[in-house]
Design a protein around this nucleic acid. Structure first.
Lengths: 218, 218
DNA sequence: GTTACCAAAATTGGCGCCAATCTTTACATG
DNA sequence: CATGTAAAGATTGGCGCCAATTTTGGTAAC
């Protein structure tokens, strides 16, 4: 387990630790000792240091000189703000997707949305997670503004992943699957306001009606 | 010169280099050689490396393994995309500013806008640049979503700075000053659509009429 | 004159070592 | 038994060294 693939450690270590922080493996306030991290993640000392430095920039850890790094679990306020930013970015991206997408790409997306829906019955959580990721990645790729698309994907990795925190009930996952389908339908119908509404609701994990005011998060 | 204050080198070196990149000291595409940087900024090798790593995360530099770091050099198409992202971010931020700003803050902004306008006659380009920066920094600070505000400021540093590339004529700078004032007026009048229009026009450096379609940039 | 190739120089980037600092333990003192 | 103090241990974090790689400069061959 401790010897994953060797490619691109440069980003990976920070992402792995970030994932584990959000999954609760490292409890908040706990010290992130460099020795533990290098043994646990199979990384070298320098990679660990770089990762810790990046976690500070992401506000997932804080640094106390000569003491070390400790987990700084994002407070509720902060995660709300990140979610708010995601709504801004993804609705803007969706708007640009809608303007340029063609029928082939829409069918492609529909296939991915259906694949996710199918896995609700038969798949493991990991498979569902990956199918969900595939759908959103494809959606981002359809955004003609690559810069915006990259930013969307970057911020998807920030807030706690939905698979761990928000897919609490089967009903909630099924709701996500329905929202995927509705995005595809809105794209096919070129219905911009509907698309933006469902994208925002999907991120906020709220009913589409509740999220009309794009301002609640402070 | 090479012995600045010793506090908090951890962030400072990256910020110093970032500032110089935006000021044009390091031309785009140029190699950021570690030895040059440590002599020029009076920093150690490790500080330079950390700074370079952070500049990559901020997308102000690119890393090529075993070659080094070079100043990020977006092509024209990419620059358009970054500008498009800035419109998305700053209009969203402006919307959130409008919802929470009070009369005192508006007067504060008006003072900064007037200070910029005054410098059009009397000030140097550098003073104008800094007054412009002060106005936009204050505007960002008024955004209750800190994450969004930080992202706005980060993206202001990407793309070429307006002072060097877009303030080509006196008329254009005066237009910028007028737009600052109009933002203040729109805030005071709680006129959201007007505010968004002028913010978008300000970024695109186009007349407010031309930019209604938020989609032109690919 | 141009191209191919090889050697030398320069640069990056990783690793180990060690000093500085903080924490813990042991001990002495009241 | 509590408390203050000093030594020992553990951890971080910086510095120098060196291998890997690329670029440069020079030389020979065509």
């Amino acid at each position: 387990m401790h010897k994953g693939p060797r490619r691109e450690k440069r980003n990976d270590v920070a992402d792995l630790i970030a994932r584990d922080i959000q999954a609760g493996v490292h409890s908040r306030g706990a010290w992130l000792k460099q020795i533990d991290l290098q043994t646990h993640y199979g990384a070298t000392r320098i990679e660990v240091r770089r990762a810790l430095d990046r976690l500070v920039l992401r506000r997932l850890a804080q640094h106390e000189p000569n003491r070390g790094y400790r987990v700084y679990a994002p407070d509720e306020n902060h995660t709300d703000q990140i979610r708010d930013v995601r709504v801004v970015l993804e609705t803007a991206a969706a708007e640009r997707v809608l303007e340029t997408v063609d029928a082939v790409a829409i069918e492609d997306l529909r296939t991915l949305a259906l694949a996710f829906a199918d896995l609700l019955m038969t798949g493991t959580l990991l498979q569902q997670y990956e199918a969900n990721l595939a759908f959103h990645h494809r959606m981002a790729q359809l955004c003609p503004n690559r810069e915006l698309a990259d930013l969307v994907l970057e911020y998807r990795g920030r807030g706690a992943s939905a698979a761990l925190t928000q897919w609490t009930t089967r009903a909630r996952i099924e709701q996500s699957a329905r929202e995927h389908m509705e995005m595809v339908e809105a794209l096919a119908a070129r219905d911009l306001s509907r698309l933006k509404r469902v994208v925002a609701a999907h991120i906020r994990q709220a009913e589409a009606g509740e999220i009309d005011a794009p301002s609640s998060a402070r």
